[in-house]
Design a protein around this nucleic acid. Structure first.
Length: 204
DNA sequence: CGGACGATTCTCT
DNA sequence: GAGAATCGTCCGG
């Protein structure tokens, strides 16, 4: 596609200081940023348009609820800016670790808007319509080629990184998706999205 | 080592 | 909107 040539030389990964802002702030700051993944088969990127914050020990919906510390959640207890990937129903989902050491908070990236490497995304997703390439947490990882091998990767480094994108005109918020069995936490408005963006996974 | 369980997706109706 | 697919992770025995 026409804008593919811009990647990967023009943009610098955001510094680690970007990731140390409070988790709920970071979840909103990530909206509009460009998520880039460089692989052997090529580079693909998309603007983040939907996120969800998971607030650690107090948040019943979080994997780290009650400080549950396993091989899977271990990365959440480390410093901000690392990648937390995990497998859900055969799909790989990608999170940004936030907060500080020993405070296991993270932000799930639920949707992006395709920017570069669109042919590659189409090939990976095997569906025609662009709207279905990246409008869900399991879809975007497949389109961008993000796998469990990215677990623990630091986002200030290539090949997987986040860089400056656009500033959303408006941000909406509401309850998170797919956590109905999480007690009171299911109603917390910790899902954020770019208002009106067509790649957001659910309208609500 | 077996079984239960999803921060999902896709295919119908 | 409901139901199936499908598999890595976690926990109990």
């Amino acid at each position: 596609m026409s804008n593919d040539f811009i990647i990967p030389f023009s943009f610098q990964p955001l510094p680690q200081s970007f990731y140390t802002q409070p988790t709920l702030e970071l979840a909103k700051s990530l909206l509009g940023c460009l998520l880039v993944n460089e692989t052997e088969s090529g580079t693909a990127s998309g603007f983040i348009v939907e996120t969800e914050a998971y607030m650690g020990p107090e948040d019943q919906a979080a994997h780290s609820f009650n400080n549950r510390r396993t091989k899977r959640t271990e990365i959440m207890f480390g410093p901000a800016g690392h990648v937390y990937t995990y497998v859900m129903h055969t799909h790989c989902l990608v999170n940004v670790v936030s907060s500080t050491i020993e405070k296991p908070e993270a932000i799930l990236i639920r949707a992006v808007e395709p920017f570069s490497g669109k042919e590659l995304m189409k090939e990976r997703r095997k569906v025609d319509h662009i709207k279905n390439w990246t409008n869900g947490p399991g879809k975007l990882t497949k389109a961008l080629g993000i796998t469990m091998s990215s677990y623990g990767h630091l986002l200030t480094e290539r090949p997987l990184f986040i860089t400056e994108g656009f500033t959303p005109a408006n941000i909406s918020s509401g309850p998170r998706i797919g956590i109905d069995n999480s007690g009171e936490a299911k109603d917390y408005p910790w899902r954020f999205w770019v208002t009106g963006n067509p790649f957001v996974s659910k309208s609500r």
